[in-house]
């Protein structure tokens, strides 16, 4: 929200559209500062999406912000036909994205399908910042990206991963560490710290990996991803999302088309989870550090022999 305040300061067209989500978005300071720039529509996300389309048609840049699932599921068709199809400048900010961010609220507030939905709709840029600093940068970047953008956020209680000096460049992968080329991890969101721990544990076992953040699911940085797949020849994806349709699928599609090497997916394994503490939830549903380590080892063992593209 601080990112949006700074933006609104600079650009008079920035509007905040809420569906009784001011409190959830912690947007009270924004409201105080820019009372005329907030459109509160009550608990009515479909209308909020339609109104956002109208605001954009009227030359404004609305940020429609509420829970990820109420944007991407409740208002899915409004987004698809009235925002994405006419390629309008509507920026959508979904909180509680993922299993962990929804934590004790249970399935109704755990949104692990949002990225699959948004990724399958043409024209939408899909960003997954990992912490508050990246979220600020993503909000700013979204204003400069023409057309609709979906920014997927967590609970707002997520740990800080990056210092603000690290640039957030939409459309580009972000290499976090390169210990070696035994395997490449593609990860985003709050799975990043877990993958970094896993990578260190693997190095102790003599397995040297590369860790890459993929914060832009669409457009995917295919070229750079293919380069890494060619170099490492095995990959593991890690995301707080269903293994269907999100980062794991994106990387597998990319691998299957351009560099068919083994890929394993860490994520929610297509089940409805339960309530619980976020860290405990991730551990329970197959996204623990140990799960990541084991996936890496078994994927390396599946490297084809001879390797594909071997000249």
């Amino acid at each position: 929200m601080q990112g949006l305040e700074a933006l609104a300061e600079e650009d008079d067209r920035i509007m905040l559209v809420c569906a009784d989500s001011l409190k959830a978005m912690r947007a009270d300071p924004f409201l105080e500062k820019f009372p005329d720039r907030v459109v509160e529509l009550g608990i009515a996300e479909q209308n909020a999406a339609g109104v956002s389309a109208g605001l954009a048609l009227g030359g404004l840049i609305p940020y429609f912000a509420t829970y990820a699932g109420f944007i991407t599921m409740r208002a899915c068709e409004q987004i698809r036909t009235f925002i994405a199809y006419p390629n309008l400048d509507v920026k959508m900010v979904g909180i509680n994205g993922g299993l962990a961010a929804g934590e004790r609220e249970g399935v109704s507030h755990q949104f692990f399908e949002d990225l699959a939905i948004m990724r399958s709709i043409p024209n939408i840029t899909v960003l997954v910042p990992a912490d508050a600093g990246q979220a600020r940068q993503a909000a700013k970047a979204a204003a400069e990206i023409p057309g609709p953008v979906y920014i997927r956020l967590g609970s707002g209680r997520d740990p800080v991963i990056f210092d603000d000096k690290q640039p957030f460049v939409p459309g580009k992968i972000h290499i976090l560490e390169q210990r070696g080329n035994d395997l490449v991890f593609f990860c985003n969101g709050l799975m990043i710290p877990r993958v970094l721990v896993a990578s260190a544990l693997l190095e102790a076992k003599g397995i040297a990996c590369t860790v890459v953040e993929v914060h832009t699911l669409k457009p995917l940085d295919t070229e750079a991803i293919v380069e890494l797949l060619k170099d490492c020849r095995a990959a593991v994806t890690a995301e707080d999302h269903n293994i269907i349709g999100g980062l794991g699928s994106a990387i597998m599609e990319c691998a299957a088309e351009h560099c068919p090497v083994p890929v394993a997916r860490i994520g929610l394994r297509d089940v409805f989870p339960g309530s619980g503490h976020p860290e405990a939830l991730l551990d329970f549903y197959g996204m623990s550090v140990n799960d990541i380590v084991e996936a890496a080892i078994s994927t390396i063992n599946r490297k084809p022999n001879p390797l594909p593209n071997e000249e």
């Binding site: 389309a53 109208g54 605001l55």
Partner: peptide, 16 residues
């Protein structure tokens, strides 16, 4: 969906 979009357009018109 007409009224929703008109609502947004009307807010934008008023703003300018």
């Amino acid at each position: 969906h007409g009224l929703s979009q008109a609502c947004g357009l009307a807010i934008a018109a008023r703003k300018r």
